[in-house]
Design a binder for these strands. Sequence first.
DNA 1: TCAGATTAATGGTCTGACCTCATGAAGGCC
DNA 2: GGCCTTCATGAGGTCAGACCATTAATCTGA
Lengths: 261, 261
Amino acid sequence: MNDDTNEVRPDQAGGAEAAAGPEWKPVNRASTYELVIDAVEEQIMAGSLGVGDPLPAERDLATKLGVSRASVREALRVLDSLGVVRSSGGSGRGAGTFIAAMPSAALTRFLRLHVALTNFSIDDVTETRIQLERSSAILAATRADKDALAEVNAQLAMMDTPGISLETFNDADTAFHVAIAQAAGNQLFSDLTGAIRTSLRKSIFSSFSRVDDQQALMAKLQAQHHGIMHAITAGRAEEAAALTEEHIRFAASRLPGLSDT
Amino acid sequence: MNDDTNEVRPDQAGGAEAAAGPEWKPVNRASTYELVIDAVEEQIMAGSLGVGDPLPAERDLATKLGVSRASVREALRVLDSLGVVRSSGGSGRGAGTFIAAMPSAALTRFLRLHVALTNFSIDDVTETRIQLERSSAILAATRADKDALAEVNAQLAMMDTPGISLETFNDADTAFHVAIAQAAGNQLFSDLTGAIRTSLRKSIFSSFSRVDDQQALMAKLQAQHHGIMHAITAGRAEEAAALTEEHIRFAASRLPGLSDT
DNA sequence: TCAGATTAATGGTCTGACCTCATGAAGGCC
DNA sequence: GGCCTTCATGAGGTCAGACCATTAATCTGA
């Protein structure tokens, strides 16, 4: 399954290299599509391109940059997968490629893949989730507005529906936690929280299916949800954070295979 | 700069839709390259492909999946940009495309772009960093081994070098914080911490250049670094966390433009 | 035996073609 | 005049095929 000859993880910030010898520069011949990405990124950094702005048509861009359309397309595909760009066919208004802002899906796929490859352990991801959601709970209890809390309550009510399916419950559960992050007013918290939950969706399902009394577990989780919401509504920030952490750790401990412990 | 006709952020988890009417499904015609990505992802999820394993040659994969090589390449480019795959030309051993595990660069580019597009505010990112590094500090103080701490100390020593350039200091600074996250033993913490720092690299530089007494600021930051390291080494987890948070908030407050406050 | 030349396999790039689709203008009908 | 149909246009989506650069494996000959 593994091959020692293929080094992996050559990036990473650290690495204090002992200064000695002629110090050859590491070549770094960027591929054509990387250059195209850089060109687009440059415009974004310079502020010439913002969300909603159109990019030149693929053929035009290829001509302007002096590369083939294939290379332009590879670059745009990457940017598309990063949620930075959105393309649609047709003609006239709305046709073409535009700068967009859709980080969630990209983040989700990224985490899903790297969790599957065990670059990130589920425990690591869960720990990250705990820290983010603790902060979300604190901020939500401190500064949340009514609209944001209404969304949280909507998801809470959804999960209170009797006879709800596991799938519906899980999706509302995710939406509940994301809504709290949203109420905290931190977009990165919110997107990361959603991405983590969504990337573990399948694992959660298969894990849940091995639980003896699913209804009892769902009821217990929902009771914890209510407790968290109470604390947030009452403005008891620390309590909300503690309950959130307890809730996530409890869920992880009850779902076999989701946690190593 | 913006165009109302282009809706943005159509993803996101939540959204309890009022059930009424015929409920049309949202079409979802996936493009060819998405299908190729799905095919690869499926193999990964099924465990048939792990880190280091080779993928079929592009031409073979195209034939097997019944698509053009261009579509395969677009998919592989996306996976490459996600750090999931690594390609090299040539022939024989080591040539071809392999499953890899290089999430850092991908995370960095993702954050850099979305911060530039103001999808994530610098404050949001900083807040995320604080929470992650607080946890890292606590875990590092609790369970760090000597090797990991040695790396932290190496970076600390680097920053103690007299007459060090701003660039060198900043890079060692980043490496210092990443090393602590590494010592905490959480890969996601570590990669996120590095990505956040690296994605803000340019902003930090331009911000630092507007500081009056750079040497004094660097000295102050370095003093805080020593304080954090002392607390970690002594196993005083909570103190390490508090000092870390204070350190980051201090830096953000002293670097104009990096923070809105 | 070993150095050098050859070959084969692979990714990297480019070209040009064709398809689908949404728009918007032209034209025809009422 | 106003509405509908038709169609040309231009955008992305896909494909087939060619050629290049690089590299390992193989062959060849001294």
